[in-house]
Design a protein around this nucleic acid. Structure first.
Length: 108
DNA sequence: GGATTGACGTGTC
DNA sequence: AGACACGCCAATC
């Protein structure tokens, strides 16, 4: 399997600058799959098995909620990583989400 | 190859 | 404001 949809998702995810986050839908849209936001998250399940570490913790849903935190080594791991990068997480939700939001389309 | 699923998104009740 | 439902798309079974 090469150049599958997953790889594209990982590619975008790795481009997320430190201290910034993005949403699944935004990535999906950047890939041109608009409504395939679920596929982005699904691809992230493999993020643990890919080469360069994929900053999946920088990817949240459109509400800025850490929906996939349970898929990490530890749910709290995700939040700590975000806070360590300067992102404030409150109640499993990213604070100032609009401010830290990084739009892949803007870079691509 | 049809059916199921899934770390989503938006709208409606 | 919280809960529920439908829609999208691609991979896996």
């Amino acid at each position: 399997m090469e150049a599958s949809f997953y790889e594209q998702v990982f590619e975008i995810a790795r481009l997320i600058p430190k201290g910034r986050v993005t949403s699944y839908g935004a990535i999906a849209k950047a890939l041109g799959t608009g409504g395939g936001a679920r596929m982005v998250g699904y691809a992230m399940s493999n993020s643990h098995a890919v080469h360069p570490k994929v900053p999946a913790h920088r990817v949240v849903n459109s509400s800025g909620l850490l929906t996939g935190k349970f898929h990490f080594s530890s749910p709290e791991r995700m939040q700590q990583l975000l806070e360590k990068e300067g992102i404030i997480v409150e109640n499993d939700k990213i604070k100032d989400f609009k401010k830290v939001f990084w739009n892949p389309l803007d870079e691509l």
